[in-house]
């Protein structure tokens, strides 16, 4: 067993066990931490496939940005999951897992068939002479800005749309009603948009829009009692 194999099997085992832990943990924060472990193990696999730049991206984007987003949302939501899933209807779980395992075993069968039929094509690229710069930032970037330029631009547009969409979706009812009132919607139009069930006129004080937050009514002295 070569050192390469030892590293691969160790990190593959880590990836699988931490993925299992991600799916089975009850507390979402613990699950998120296990997911970070999975991402690191997958990044090691990328390095072993000589995709070094992609491994760095994996750690930066997944383990860095996306996990922070997840943990932030979990903290904001203040979810308490302990002991909530035991009292659920088991028949539904049974049904879903039945059909799920049916689909998965069918997929596995296909996998074995295809794998054994195409065995000669799945031999490793051991005799393949890789270019020394294979997988580097220069290599990937060159391809990204020439052949995949359109996809790159489309992806950037999609990210912009996702950011705007996330902000729009995550706004609270109160914020939406306040903005609609400020932009001059009539009370009838507000009601038609489903925003009118708290009095929109109360949001606009005579001296201009009052800063209304979700943390209770604003006080003249501030939340810390005025210092």
């Amino acid at each position: 067993m070569t050192g390469e194999q030892v590293v691969f099997y160790a990190f593959a085992a880590l990836a699988v066990t931490s993925a299992l832990a991600t799916v089975t943990r009850r507390n979402p924060v613990v699950a998120a931490v296990w997911l970070v472990a999975t991402f690191f193990a997958v990044a090691v696999c990328y390095v072993m496939l000589s995709a070094t730049f992609l491994a760095a991206i994996q750690i930066l984007v997944y383990a860095g940005a996306m996990m922070v987003l997840f943990v932030f949302v979990i903290m904001v939501l203040d979810v308490d999951e302990r002991g909530r899933e035991e009292h659920r209807r088991p028949s539904r779980i049974a049904k879903i897992s039945y059909y799920g395992s049916l689909v998965l075993s069918g997929g596995f069968l296909t996998w074995v068939l295809v794998g054994s039929l195409a065995r000669q094509y799945l031999k490793p690229g051991a005799d393949l002479r890789l270019r020394p710069e294979f997988g580097s930032a220069e290599d990937v970037g060159h391809l990204l800005f020439t052949k995949y330029l359109f996809a790159f631009e489309a992806i950037s547009l999609m990210l912009l749309a996702a950011v705007i969409g996330a902000v729009v979706v995550a706004r609270s009812h109160r914020e939406r009603a306040k903005e609609a009132t400020r932009s001059g919607m009539s009370p009838e139009a507000l009601h038609a948009a489903g925003l009118g069930d708290h009095d929109p006129a109360g949001d606009i004080a005579p001296g201009g829009p009052t800063p209304i937050t979700d943390f209770g009514a604003p006080s003249a002295t501030g939340h810390d009692g005025g210092t």
């Binding site: 992609l54 996306m66 997988g135 990937v140 990204l144 790159f152 996702a162 996330a166």
Partner: peptide
């Protein structure tokens, strides 16, 4: 290297999906 570029695009899609899903 094409596969790696596609994997990068997948990562971007995953990030957008996480943002919208969490919102």
């Amino acid at each position: 290297t094409d596969g790696q570029v596609l994997a990068m695009l997948t990562i971007a899609v995953a990030a957008a999906e996480a943002a919208v899903g969490l919102a």
